[in-house]
């Protein structure tokens, strides 16, 4: 690290009354060793909204409401040191014990931590008509992408290998999208009232890289995009993301789902939302756009990518749906058992 770098670092560390013994750049962070311990110094462009988000999360973490790695306050009480263009903050150093490439393990922790975050910051139910309408809009866009792709492919005398592959599975996805559209178009319940769903603090950018794991302890970090919202959207997006990132062999969807459910049980409406959200995956639509826009398409790559996406997605969807059905079955059995017991008591 050159002298210019260490000069600004010294100035920043002065806000914490820390004198560095050694400095090392690690990823996007600077590792700072001092006599008072090891810290991670982060330099990032943050806007006012992001600073407010970090302050909210810091207050929650300080009250032990959530388990998060947050910026440490300076000796003057500021959480963020703001330069004209850049912001700086210091965090305790986490000696990670799970490698960044070990995605299955990271996702296992991530599902659990996300569930804890949602559960601990859960708020009352609120009307979700706007959310459902938004979902319908997104669905409409995805359907358009599909229709455009299929229209082009069908008009080719000789469809390319990738187009043929997509055409083969298209009917399933088109049907799925229609099912999802039917679900999200019903933003009112049977009594005609607007549907309601639970809100909570959402991280905003849940990825395995925004999770720090040190032995048995794991904590979420990088909360600058966090905000209050219908948490089921974040949960569903996490499942979708994991399906793209993980190989089929690596992913144990039962464990992921159970891990989330054990910390933050989803109600019936939320389960329905998750199930239908997963019916129109964004990764598939993105790949279709990418193919249409690429001038010299590597057919083999696109075909194998499509096949892998479809396989993992199907595998995930089937596993989650099965789990939900099993849960429902268990609940029904319990209810019946209870009803039978009550009847027996009444007869007796």
């Amino acid at each position: 690290m050159d002298q210019k770098d260490s000069s600004w670092i010294n100035r920043i560390l002065f806000y914490y009354d820390l004198v560095p013994i050694s400095l090392a750049a690690e990823g996007g962070l600077t590792r700072v060793d001092t006599y008072f311990g090891r810290f991670a110094l982060k330099r990032k462009v943050l806007n006012d909204r992001q600073v407010r988000a970090l302050q909210t999360v810091y207050a929650l973490a300080r009250r032990l409401v959530i388990d998060a790695v947050c910026p440490l306050p300076t000796k003057y009480g500021d959480l963020i040191i703001r330069d004209q263009a850049t912001s700086y903050y210091l965090m305790p150093w986490f000696q990670e014990t799970v490698d960044a490439s070990n995605l299955p393990e990271r996702y296992r922790h991530l599902f659990h931590k996300a569930a804890q975050l949602h559960r601990q910051t859960m708020e009352k139910k609120q009307e979700c008509a706007t959310l459902y309408q938004g979902m319908v809009r997104v669905l409409g866009q995805r359907q358009m992408i599909w229709e455009h792709f299929l229209y082009t492919a069908e008009h080719h005398v000789y469809p390319s290998p990738f187009e043929q592959t997509v055409l083969q599975s298209a009917f399933i996805y088109l049907e799925n999208m229609q099912r999802a559209r039917d679900f999200f178009s019903r933003d009112k319940d049977e009594e005609g009232k607007s549907k309601k769903m639970r809100r909570a603090l959402c991280h905003g950018r849940l990825t395995p890289l925004h999770l720090l794991i040190e032995n048995e302890r794991s904590c979420l970090t990088n909360f600058e995009n966090s905000e209050d919202g219908f948490f089921i959207v974040e949960t569903a997006a996490l499942f979708e993301q994991a399906a793209v990132m993980l190989e089929r062999k690596q992913s144990d969807w039962r464990t992921f789902y159970q891990s989330y459910q054990s910390a933050c049980p989803l109600d019936e409406e939320e389960q329905g939302f998750l199930q239908h959200f997963l019916l129109f995956p964004s990764a598939h639509a993105d790949l279709l756009i990418r193919y249409s826009q690429s001038e010299t398409a590597d057919e083999q790559w696109f075909v194998s990518r499509w096949t892998r996406l479809c396989e993992t997605h199907q595998f995930m969807y089937t596993a989650i749906t099965k789990m939900m059905k099993e849960e429902q079955k268990r609940k029904d059995e319990l209810r019946k058992q209870k009803e039978a017991e009550e009847k027996q008591e009444a007869d007796g």
């Binding site: 002065f14 000796k75 003057y76 009480g77 703001r82 004209q84």
Partner: peptide
């Protein structure tokens, strides 16, 4: 501000 230090109060 970031251009000079001020003798702010510690919390």
């Amino acid at each position: 501000n970031e251009r000079f230090f001020v003798d702010r109060m510690y919390v």
